[in-house]
């Protein structure tokens, strides 16, 4: 399923317009990273794409069919697009992990058995099958983040939008999260993530959306993150492999340490 936005505007009276005519495309098979400064509107954009935020203008469309912000339209949309926000504490509202993950499936009207199956599958994909009976408030931050993702995964969405999935995690936690994301992709889910970590964005993503000044630019990740003007305007930083390549006058765009080493040898 292709998820698109066109001419999207959104804002709050107190802050003016946050998104000012944004067009983006999230296609299956792409790994899209969403980049921008704090307050640039990344989260608002994710909210619009997931149906949580009603834009003041423009459309969000799934496979070309515009999203209607009616109860019916939103229900359909939410079966296919799920958003996981940055702070897991506010997304886990049940006492134990299994209960929390089963919330979505049960709301879909599935039987208890089917819901149980979905929960097991989601916990498995996130690599946290052992946490199924634990109390949510006893989990570590990294575990909570994965449970929050599992809650969305149990809805079996086509698109999963993740806001800062690796923020606040230690290096091992980041690796676990990325491994879980890879399993989800193998399972057919298209992943989009917003992140501040430009090095991660470069090594993980294929397509990038850079949000700045209410507008968005979309393109291949190595191209956008190597564009010094864009990166400066968006208050970002050039990832080190690209910076290194530029400074050494390479014409290639290495994405990580391995590609840098290959180029050097």
């Amino acid at each position: 399923m292709i998820l698109q936005a066109e001419g999207l505007t959104a804002g709050y009276r107190s802050r003016g317009r946050v998104l000012d005519g944004i067009g983006v495309t999230l296609a299956p098979g792409e790994r899209t990273v969403l980049l921008g400064a704090n307050g640039s509107g990344k989260t608002t954009l994710l909210g619009c794409l997931s149906g949580a935020v009603v834009p003041t203008g423009g459309v969000v469309a799934a496979d070309g069919i515009p999203l209607q912000h009616t109860r019916r339209g939103l229900t359909d949309h939410r079966r296919r697009v799920q958003l996981v926000l940055q702070d897991p504490d506010d997304q886990l509202f049940s006492a134990d992990v299994g209960q929390d993950v089963s919330f979505g499936p049960l709301n879909l009207g599935l039987s208890e058995d089917e819901a149980r199956e979905r929960v097991a599958e989601a916990l498995d994909l996130l690599g946290i099958a052992h946490l199924g009976e634990r109390a949510t408030h006893q989990l570590s931050y990294g575990e909570k983040k994965r449970v929050a993702v599992a809650g969305a995964v149990a809805m079996r969405p086509d698109h999963l939008l993740l806001d800062e999935p690796t923020a606040g995690l230690d290096p091992d936690g980041v690796e676990d999260m990325l491994a879980a994301i890879a399993r989800l992709e193998a399972h057919g889910t298209t992943i989009t993530m917003a992140t501040h970590d430009v090095d991660l964005a470069l090594s993980w993503g294929t397509s990038a959306i850079v949000v700045t000044g209410g507008r968005a630019v979309q393109g291949p990740v190595a191209e956008l993150l190597g564009d010094a003007d864009l990166v400066t305007a968006a208050h970002l930083r050039i990832p080190w492999p690209l910076e290194l390549a530029t400074r050494l006058g390479w014409s290639t765009r290495p994405r990580d340490l391995d590609e840098v080493l290959r180029q050097l040898s």
Partner: peptide, 27 residues
């Protein structure tokens, strides 16, 4: 927190129908 919890519940269809809505609102 309240806004985040509510939108997380809504995203997982917690406010479809009165029965589920009351349960979601209570939690």
């Amino acid at each position: 927190s309240a806004v985040t919890i509510r939108s997380a519940q809504a995203a997982r269809l917690g406010y479809v129908g009165l029965r589920r809505s009351v349960r979601s609102f209570g939690s």
